[in-house]
Amino acid sequence: MTRVHDMGGRFGDGTVTPEDEDVIFHADWHPRALALTLATGALGKWNIDVSRHARECLSPTDYARFSYYEKWIAGVADMLVARGVVTREELAGMADPTSSPLAEKTLKAQQVAGVLARGGPADRPSDIVPLFAPGDGVVTRKQPENTIVPGGHTRLPAYAAGAKGRVLRLHGTHVLPDSNAHDLGEAPEPLYAVAFPASELWAHPEHPRDEVVLDLWQSYLEAP
């Protein structure tokens, strides 16, 4: 089973509303929520795959009704408790906050530029040999599920499960989210851009030559 975040191809969401380029945030608390999320990430208690998984673990009801930055804040709160950084009582305002032993890692204003500039590259050396080359046909695995952890994080969307495509390019070897989101190691492996004809994915493609390209790890793919 997939989670509610996996919405590619879904019907019923209505129209898309363009907006001016100079609109960056839509409420005063949005930039604060963004900054808070980045600053807590700098504490080093989780990686980006863990944080994506935390948002995906919101109940479908919460995921659907929360706005973008509400999902971020909910994910941060859940991770802070899960990782023992704050207690439920502190979060509820029912206990006086105690100072944290993690405080030496607190992001300082003068460190922000460096932390943002470094980012979090995901390419790693790997012993896993690429099985495919650009031009090769591939088929994605039938179930859009994490094969290591039941119900775990994965980056194969349901709409592209069990689909035939062709490799456009090899991106190198990258951290595998299905492992890294569950603290099971980075498990780097070859990552490919794979193109799928729209007619392979949809019953009513708009145009015979349209395609969708996804970045997919080697363990998501088989030879056709």
């Binding site: 808070l36 807590t40 704050v86 502190e90 979060l91 405080a103 607190t106």
Partner: peptide
């Protein structure tokens, strides 16, 4: 959340301003 984390010493509000 910002108030709680600031009191625990885990957030520097000036760093948030910088971000």
């Amino acid at each position: 959340l910002e108030t709680l984390l600031t009191r625990k010493g885990l957030i520097d509000p000036a760093a948030l301003d910088e971000i």
